[in-house]
């Protein structure tokens, strides 16, 4: 949306997971509370980064933001490694969501169902806010023509900061959701960030519908790929990405004008 490519998104995801872990360890924050608290905390951290650092680079080629956030990844990951150690920490599935649910055709872990439901709700909410509410309209307008929007008396800066914060909070929420299924460790963001980029590029930068659709479609594709021909499933997403960029540079759902 903001034409800010945030390499540190994966690190925010990792911080979300760590916030959950430390919340539970130090303050006995239960999982369901962490679902709210961790994204808020990490989102606030994101806003701090945006206002103190990223904002300085907005007038320049977006590449510089990419570079700065790349540097932030290195710093944040290593700081977490110093604090938490490289091995990672366990976080167990909340009791209420343990166990297995019988879906009739197959057995599925209750927690995974919960994750799917939460993701769907959040995605729908994000889409609804951006596409159908006045705030969303302002955000969209601000990205397309910041000068005009500013002339209308809207504080573009705050809008941008707020949107960035929400984006970071969502990454952190994903981290919270991931905490019980994976090992919470400093490099966990590394493995997701590249996939996330590919998904966003395929869906189209700035298109929430696109990202959601691409995310789910590729998840499915990857699972099918893993069953049909395992060696290729990891590379599949990048192959799709290259094909999409060649034939639809703005992504499947993006508006074609924004090539740069």
């Amino acid at each position: 949306m903001l034409r800010v490519v945030n390499f540190a998104h994966g690190a925010m995801y990792m911080l979300g997971a760590f916030a959950t872990y430390y919340g539970a360890q130090l303050f006995h924050v239960p999982f369901f509370a962490a679902l709210i608290i961790a994204p808020l905390a990490v989102g606030a951290f994101g806003i701090l980064l945006e206002t103190t650092l990223l904002r300085r680079l907005y007038g320049l080629d977006p590449i510089y933001n990419l570079l700065l956030t790349f540097a932030l990844v290195l710093v944040i990951e290593d700081v977490m490694r110093l604090l938490a150690g490289p091995l990672g920490s366990p976080y167990s599935t909340p009791d209420a969501l343990g166990g297995i649910t019988n879906l009739g055709f197959t057995l599925y872990p209750t927690y995974k169902l919960f994750v799917i439901v939460v993701s769907l709700v959040v995605c729908l909410a994000a889409w609804w806010i951006v596409e159908l509410t006045p705030v969303g309209a302002r955000i969209r307008a601000a990205t397309e023509n910041p000068v005009l929007v500013r002339a209308l008396g809207i504080d573009v800066r705050r809008l941008v900061t707020g949107t960035f914060g929400v984006g970071v909070a969502l990454a952190a929420l994903a981290g919270v959701l991931a905490a019980p299924t994976t090992n919470v460790q400093p490099s966990m963001g590394d493995s997701v960030i590249i996939y996330t980029f590919a998904i966003v590029v395929i869906g189209g930068l700035g298109s929430i519908v696109g990202s959601i659709a691409a995310g789910f479609a590729l998840g499915l594709l990857q699972t099918i790929g893993a069953i049909v021909f395992p060696p290729i499933s990891t590379t599949l997403i990048f192959i799709v990405m290259v094909i999409v960029i060649v034939f639809r540079p703005a992504g499947l759902f993006g508006k074609p004008e924004s090539a740069r």
Partner: peptide, 14 residues
């Protein structure tokens, strides 16, 4: 990490 994650999943499915 693979062992950790797969072991966790194995226990989730009992």
């Amino acid at each position: 990490a693979d062992t950790v994650n797969s072991m966790k999943a194995a226990k989730q499915f009992q």
